[in-house]
Design a protein around this nucleic acid. Structure first.
Length: 423
RNA sequence: AGAGAGGUGUCCGAGUGGUUUAAGGAGCACGCUUGGAAAGCGUGUAUACGGCAACGUAUCGGGGGUUCGAAUCCCUUCCUCUCUGCCA
């Protein structure tokens, strides 16, 4: 969420930056400031009257103690008049505050200066492409055929148990998932991240804090009996560890990693894009999350990008890094790098990680602050990235490492899986 | 799931309608004292919003209510603990 005081002080800059994100209603900046002006006026009026009431009430207490009932009764009448003014003010103030809140949550985060202009994925900027694409044997198969051939994942039975997009991993397919999770977590821990296993359902307050609510409730599964939401990513519960917390300067940076299943309703399109493991309703992911000093977040973003890159290199997959353009970025992000791996048999790039700096957008919303060296309270910056999302890594490894007789494994995974070949 | 007891500041803890402007203690910070330290003494020590400021307003788990006045009374909700039940 953007701060109204920031909009007030940077009205034109904010409008220009919102345009980069293709925000349709720049005048909403002015609206927000007007609402805030009204809120200030109301509060001034309310505070003044309330102060009179408070003072009079104290006086009544004193009069009662002295037994001067008549004077006390007279004062009570006076207070009653003020209170009549107070009630509508209080109601109005509540309304205006809600209106301001509802307005502010509509603003996406402002893009970082490095964010390229553009509206569509085609306009994302290629930062780097590395690794060599494998030369597959003739008759090489896409992963949805390979997993059937080797009985690694069964979509039909998953659909029978739950519905489409809920894969059932079997035997070596299941073990491979477990090996990947373990490898990714160890890799993150070695880089200084602390592992968490968070709740996989969250309450409304948590879903609001990281920005899933109020607008995106349709994308989450909702357990209505208890009003809990199944998490779409570990980012939600893990970031919320620090909701309503004031940290010490010395606590930063906070580096966290977590494995979780992720649940996404997202009604997708049809065809190649969503075939097999390319897009599913339930998948596994290991996430890295940091809370850092605002001065450090640019630097930390680069470190996180380098971290994910190192992980991909260790898997021997051809990859590319894209800096997302304003139109393709997430709502809450100030700058995002996407990682894609090349899935050889599909001849397609698959997104496997998204690393973003949210700056103070999330932390303001969830009131995660720290006391700086001067003892002043500031909002921390939050960043996160996938390291990594499993299904597409699974797909890419299976496709890229296939041979005529089976599927090999990247060296880094062999000790985790306990064999040199998946099958 | 049922019954009961609780939730107060960084922490412990007092507080059952009115100088509570949340006592007292601990911790922490700074100062005095000291050769140095400890002890002792003094001062300070939440957050948000409004205001140039003085200061004002709100917050005693959350929300609502009663009252001139609520940490205190009422309703509601969340959480913790104890017992019972159920369960991997």
């Amino acid at each position: 969420m953007l701060q109204v005081n920031f909009l007030r002080q940077n009205r034109e800059i904010a409008k220009q930056k919102l345009a980069i994100k293709h925000f349709g209603n720049p005048d909403l900046v002015d609206t927000a400031i007007e609402i805030d002006d009204e809120r200030k006026q109301l509060q001034a009026a309310f505070d003044e009257t309330q102060a009179k009431v408070n003072a009079a009430s104290k006086e009544i207490g004193g009069l009662m103690a002295k037994g001067e009932q008549d004077k006390a009764a007279a004062l009570k009448n006076e207070v009653a008049d003020w209170k009549k003014q107070l009630d509508p003010l209080k109601i109005k103030m509540g309304e205006v505050e809600t209106k301001l809140q509802n307005t502010l949550v509509q603003f996406p985060n402002l893009p970082h200066d490095l964010v390229p202009l553009g509206k569509t994925p085609e306009e994302n900027v290629l930062v780097k492409e590395a690794g060599s694409k494998p030369n597959l044997h003739s008759g090489a198969l896409p992963h949805w055929d390979l997993i059937k051939k080797y009985n690694l994942v069964d979509f039909e039975t998953g659909a029978k148990i739950t519905g489409s997009g809920f894969p059932l991993y079997i035997g070596k397919g299941a073990k491979f998932q477990r090996a990947l999770v373990q490898y990714f977590l160890d890799f993150n821990i070695a880089a200084g991240y602390t592992e968490y296993i968070p709740p996989f359902m969250v309450n409304e307050a948590s879903a609001f804090a990281t920005g899933q609510l109020p607008d995106k409730e349709g994308q989450m599964y909702h357990a209505t009996a208890d009003n809990f939401y199944l998490i779409p990513t570990a980012e939600v519960p893990v970031t919320n560890i620090f909701r309503d917390v004031i940290l010490k300067d010395s606590d930063l940076p906070i580096q966290m990693t977590a494995y979780s299943p992720c649940f996404r309703r997202e009604a997708g399109s049809f065809g190649k894009e969503v075939r097999g493991l390319n897009r599913v309703h339930q998948f596994e992911k290991v996430e890295v999350i940091q809370l850092v000093h605002p001065d450090k977040s640019d630097e930390v973003l680069d470190e996180m990008v380098a971290h994910v890159e190192k992980l991909l290199i260790s898997l021997g997959l051809p990859y590319r890094i894209l800096r997302l353009c304003g139109g393709d970025m997430g709502f809450a992000s100030a700058i995002t790098y996407d990682f894609e791996v090349y899935s050889a048999a599909q001849a397609m790039w698959l997104e496997v990680s998204s690393v973003s700096n949210f700056q103070a957008y999330q932390t303001y919303r969830m009131k995660c602050r720290f006391k700086d060296a001067e003892g002043k309270t500031q909002f921390a910056h939050s960043l996160n990235g996938s390291s990594l999302a499993l299904p597409r890594i699974f797909a890419a490894i299976v496709e890229n490492y296939q041979t005529e007789n089976g599927i090999a494994l990247p060296e880094a995974l062999q000790s985790y899986f306990g064999a040199t070949h998946l099958v």
